[in-house]
């Protein structure tokens, strides 16, 4: 009995001490707890996404190795050129799918399913958002690391060495995935539910963003696309492959159409490194500010 009372007194004392840890210390603690909890909660999504990335890698392998061989195309002369084939459109598509999957539920889920009723006021929206952004980004980064490891191993097997430009490409992939995550989080801050956010994100990033330059070009607003497409943030994704073997001329013009009726189509291959870094940081800041404002204003039924 006496030991029970002693234990209770000790517990109360510890509780009092622990509760004194407020302010910045509590902020960091809550963010850290949210990261841990969110990682546990989304671990199954990670396994699924790793399979998606593996599938994308195998598909790229099939197309680059088998089909190229069948069609008699020349093999890449160095590891950097080889890697360009693997971190191109398929990889960007996988990046979009995984980011939408991890990020789609960041905010919308708590309002749609009313899980927010349990979270608030145990934690503030700001701390929750920061914690979740970090954890979802970490999960996405794990997928990217996994994919780059596969590409690295392949390049090493084929060439015995791997170009150091893979590090730049990896860095750009991480930065670009964060831009995508902030965009998806922005959509999640006002969309009704997670599924709708994921689908909308994928459609916008894969289709709408790709169509805008064409529409502008055909409408004559930006004749021959002479202006770099900084206004479309998906354009910055091209630096992931571009940085592996940065072309001398980032702007190309092609002749398309039947003989005698050819027309010129111009396009930008990749942004410059400075332009990409600046542009992506600007987009990150814009999306985060918009997300924060919308999230703070959003109210759930029970909140």
């Amino acid at each position: 009995m006496a030991s029970d009372i002693k234990r209770d007194e000790k517990l109360i004392k510890e509780l009092e001490i622990s509760r004194q840890k407020v302010g910045l210390r509590r902020d960091f603690m809550q963010i850290s707890n949210t990261i841990t909890f969110d990682l546990k909660r989304n671990i199954n999504k990670l396994y699924v996404m790793l399979f998606v990335y593996l599938g994308i890698f195998l598909l790229s392998l099939l197309m680059n190795e088998l089909l190229s061989g069948l069609m008699g195309l020349l093999a890449p002369t160095d590891s950097a050129t080889l890697m360009v084939n693997y971190v191109g459109e398929f990889f960007t598509m996988a990046l979009i799918i995984s980011t939408a999957t991890f990020g789609g539920s960041i905010i919308a889920e708590d309002f749609y399913r009313q899980t927010g009723n349990l979270l608030f006021p145990k934690i503030s929206k700001t701390r929750l958002l920061i914690g979740r952004l970090i954890s979802r980004y970490a999960l996405n980064a794990l997928c990217i690391i996994f994919f780059y490891t596969l590409v690295y191993i392949l390049a090493f097997i084929k060439y015995g060495e791997v170009s150091t430009t893979i590090i730049y490409s990896f860095g750009w992939a991480l930065l670009y995935s964060f831009v995508l995550l902030t965009f998806v989080t922005f959509l999640s801050s006002f969309m009704k539910n997670t599924s709708f956010t994921i689908i909308t994100s994928i459609l916008m990033l894969l289709l709408v963003m790709g169509m805008i330059p064409m529409i502008l070009s055909f409408s004559g607003v930006t004749e021959n696309n002479e202006i770099p497409m900084f206004f479309i943030f998906s354009y910055f994704g091209t630096i992931i492959s571009g940085s592996l073997n940065m072309p001398d001329n980032r702007f190309v013009t092609q002749l398309l159409g039947p003989p005698g009726h050819e027309f010129e189509v111009s396009s930008w291959i990749t942004p410059s490194e400075f332009g990409a870094a600046l542009g992506m940081i600007i987009y990150i800041v814009i999306f985060l500010i918009l997300t924060y404002i919308l999230y703070q204003r959003r109210q759930s039924k029970g909140e």
């Binding site: 509760r19 407020v22 302010g23 899980t115 349990l118 039924k301 029970g302 909140e303």
Partner: peptide, 17 residues
């Protein structure tokens, strides 16, 4: 933070993950 630590809230219709 400090004052609300001393309160436990259950808001209507809690939904769990």
């Amino acid at each position: 933070d400090y004052l609300l630590d001393n309160i436990g809230f259950l808001i209507e219709n809690p939904t769990f993950y």
